[in-house]
Write a protein that binds this DNA or RNA. Structure first.
Length: 428
RNA sequence: GGAGAGGUGGCUGAGAGGCCGAAAGCGGCGGUUUGCUAAACCGUUAUACGGGUCACACCGUAUCGAGGGUUCGAAUCCCUCCCUCUCCGCCA
């Protein structure tokens, strides 16, 4: 959420920067400003009326004490009259406030001034080139679904029978490999100073407001039946970033670095026909997430660190990757600056996203009231960052595709062998 | 699922219709004393919004788990919900 005071103080600047995402967003800023001015007028009147009421009520107490109950009758009548207008005005106030809040919650974060300007992922520049050599095949490489099904470690038919399309079922060495990847990633991040968390994967509505999934992206979320409203998380970013909202942090605690494995649940509505094969885009998938809470002045350095931490996974697994910086038209709702790490997928002959690392500045923190007390004793919003470290299913797919052998077997990367227990998955 | 007890500031905890944004203690901050540290003593110490100011000051409004209600007036009374704890049942 953007700061309403900043919008009021500097509307043109804000419009300019938002229009780097989408030109239409400028109109929403005007709408907020108009509604806010109207709201303030009513607020002033309501507060004036309340002040009068409070003052008179106080005097009633005094009069009753000094002159007896009957003496207060007249003042009580007067207050009664005040209350009529008050009720009227207060009734106007509520919906207007809600409308403004809702508008503010629906406006995305300001992109950082220095990020590349562009419309789509086609405009994302490469910032770290690929240094791990691409695999060379003397045969036609298969895609990961074909490899996995041949090896008997992935079963999409069984998954479809159980749950429908866009679900995966891992079995035997497949299940073991998925588990090995998760453990490997978590251990690596814990060594780098992240605290491991295992959070609930069902969360309340207000938690989703905090990280920005609501109110705008409700259709992507699996909502549970019943009251109070609850949702399956679409990423561990949600519980991790919201984790400290209940208390005020102290400056000495920052930065806070968290990592967690969770399954992630996404409806993927609006992606029909896209990436329908294999592990690339499913309703349920595994992900290891990185989250940082940082002092404002350090958040961009922390973002660089996080991208390195995520890359380290691929370096150790020896999977070819490169890093791109997302352009203004491609960054996510809450983000001011985002790097994507993309792995090489031989079957598609291209790089594909496996991690997205974002600095959200105070955008999420303002939504959830997540603040720290600085050394002057003042409260400040923290900056929040999140990144995948990494998407597990896509890592699984990348391993199968990049390390497939002519005989159909798959070599396991050295770093993973202690976790997997074998150095290859044999062809049947 | 059933019965009961609770939810108050950074923390502990009092308050039971007006004198309460809220006692006291702890913690924090500033100061005095002190070779340093500690201790002692004095003072100070919630947040948001609106107005105001160059900026302070200051003024107003709201906030005692959340939302409604009663009342001239609610932390306090009533209703609904959420959460925590204890006991019982069930269960991995």
């Amino acid at each position: 959420m953007l700061d309403i005071k900043q919008i009021v103080a500097n509307p043109e600047e804000i419009k300019k920067r938002l229009s780097l995402r989408k030109p239409a967003l400028a109109g929403q800023i005007d709408e907020v400003l108009t509604k806010y001015e109207a709201y303030k007028k009513i607020l002033a009147r309501v507060e004036e009326l309340r002040a009068k009421r409070n003052e008179m009520s106080k005097s009633i107490g005094k009069i009753k004490k000094e002159q007896g109950d009957d003496a207060a009758q007249e003042v009580m009548k007067e207050v009664g009259q005040l209350k009529e207008e008050m009720a009227l005005r207060e009734a106007e106030l509520e919906p207007q406030k809600a409308e403004i809040d809702n508008l503010l919650l629906s406006i995305p974060n300001l992109p950082n001034e220095k990020i590349p300007v562009g419309l789509s992922d086609a405009d994302n520049p490469e910032v770290v080139p690929c240094t791990i050599p691409l695999p060379q095949f003397d045969f036609t490489p298969l895609d990961h679904q074909a490899i996995g099904e041949k090896l008997g470690i992935l079963d999409f038919e069984a998954a479809a029978a159980l749950s429908g399309s866009r679900f995966a079922l891992f079995k035997g060495d497949g299940a073991r490999l998925e588990r090995a990847i998760i453990s490997f990633m978590l251990d690596l991040h814990v060594k780098k100073g992240y605290q491991e968390i295992m959070p609930p994967v069902i969360v309340n509505e207000n938690i989703l407001l905090g990280t920005g999934q609501l109110p705008k992206f409700r259709e992507d979320m699996y909502e549970l039946v019943g009251e109070p409203k609850q949702f399956l998380v679409s990423t561990a970013e949600i519980p991790l970033t919201n984790l400290n909202r209940v208390r005020t942090l102290s400056e000495a605690e920052l930065p806070i670095k968290l990592t967690a494995y969770t399954p992630c649940f996404r409806k993927e509505s609006g992606t029909y026909g896209k990436d329908t094969r294999g592990l690339i885009r499913n309703h349920q998938f595994d992900k290891v997430e990185l989250v940082m809470l940082s002092k404002p002045e350090h958040s961009y350095e922390m973002l660089e660190q996080m991208v390195l931490d995520a890359q380290e996974v691929l370096k150790q697994l020896e999977i070819p990757y490169h890093v791109v910086e997302l352009c203004s038209g491609d960054i996510g709702f809450s983000s001011a600056k985002t790097y994507d790490i993309e792995v090489w997928m031989p079957s598609e002959n291209k790089f594909r996203e496996i991690s997205s690392c974002s600095n959200c500045l105070d955008f999420q923190a303002r939504r959830m009231g997540l603040r720290f007390k600085n050394t002057q004793g003042k409260l400040e919003y923290v900056h929040t960052l999140n990144g995948s470290g990494l998407a597990v299913g896509r890592t699984f797919a990348a391993i199968l595709e990049n390390f497939q052998q002519k005989d159909g077997s798959v070599i396991i990367p050295k770093a993973l062998r202690p976790y997997f227990g074998k150095d290859k998955i044999e062809a049947k």
